[in-house]
């Protein structure tokens, strides 16, 4: 079977800093990582490849340096990596991104074998939209199952997959036909550490690199800024409250400080006491 995992190289958000004066992102020196949510999808693809046989292809769209993440995915165990890179893709919103990725996925299917499951991350940690996976599924007419907590069976013979999907208030057990687009929930599996031979293979592996034309995209006005219906008009830091927090003086002991803080809370919002009493009395 052929599993394709769409990944994204993202800045390690834990290390992003905002310039205190200009309110702009300081990108210098921020390391990049594979979007953490994508790793659960990669792991699930590798598991099912190991179980039922086949290949795992990883795909990313980004600048040439995004090949770092592809190589990392190869060291974890993917068989093949495809980089979709072109200046026409710059400034893509989720609609334009799903357009370009769908074109590349079609091309991957034609070039390396029919795709059974496209895995995407649940969402990214930089954009947080959760829109690209559904966009790809819709454009390629794939069955769409998001927030999957477990895949119970992948049946290549009758072309079905049985899985568990997290929904509000419970879990749906679903069965659907392949090809499908699946996003995995965080914690749904434990991401493996690559083996030494995978690392050696990854170091030598050639990453397939396609520009828009090579991916079969003829109309580049559907890509990048021009292909994006949304326009970011303003990026800003939120304004601080008019007043900063009123600071309670630290007392001689933590106990004294605690009393002072509780008094300050009650002075600021006298009604809180009733609420706390209600909660304490178990209502």
């Amino acid at each position: 079977m052929h599993f394709v995992v769409c990944i994204k190289q993202v800045p390690d958000s834990a290390q992003i800093r905002v310039h205190p004066v200009t309110n702009t992102i300081m990108r210098q020196g921020v390391p990049t990582i594979i979007n953490p949510y994508d790793l659960f999808s990669l792991e699930e693809a590798l598991r099912w490849r190991d179980k039922v046989g086949g290949e795992v292809t990883v795909l990313t769209m980004g600048p040439p340096m995004a090949s770092d993440s592809l190589r990392k995915a190869l060291t974890i165990g993917a068989d093949r990596a495809v980089l979709l890179t072109d200046r026409f893709f710059a400034g893509s919103d989720t609609l334009a991104t799903s357009f370009a990725l769908s074109a590349a996925l079609k091309k991957i299917g034609e070039t390396f074998g029919k795709i059974d499951i496209v895995f995407c991350g649940k969402q990214t940690i930089d954009g947080d939209t959760a829109q690209v996976g559904p966009g790809v599924a819709k454009r390629l007419s794939l069955e769409q199952i998001t927030y999957v907590s477990a895949i119970n069976e992948v049946n290549g013979e009758d072309g079905t997959v049985t899985l568990e999907r997290r929904s509000e208030g419970g879990v749906q057990v679903l069965k659907t036909n392949l090809p499908a687009m699946i996003t995995m929930l965080e914690g749904s599996n434990t991401v493996r550490r690559g083996r030494i031979d995978d690392a050696l293979r990854a170091a030598r592996a050639e990453i397939v690199s396609w520009n828009a034309k090579e991916a079969g995209i003829e109309d580049v006005t559907m890509c990048g800024l021009r292909g994006s219906p949304t326009v970011v008009k303003k990026v800003f830091a939120p304004s601080p409250r008019a007043e900063k927090a009123a600071l309670v003086e630290v007392g001689a002991t933590p106990a004294a400080s605690a009393e002072a803080l509780i008094e300050a809370v009650l002075a600021k919002s006298p009604k809180i006491e009733d609420d706390l009493i209600k909660l304490a009395s178990g209502f």
């Binding site: 993202v10 800045p11 958000s13 992003i16 800093r17 905002v18 309110n23 992102i25 940690i125 930089d126 947080d128 219906p229 949304t230 326009v231 970011v232 008009k233 303003k234 990026v235 800003f236 830091a237 939120p238």
Partner: peptide
């Protein structure tokens, strides 16, 4: 936006 370090206003 940017992993929650800034806000942005978006139009369609």
């Amino acid at each position: 936006t940017f992993g929650g370090s800034l806000l942005c206003t978006i139009y369609t």
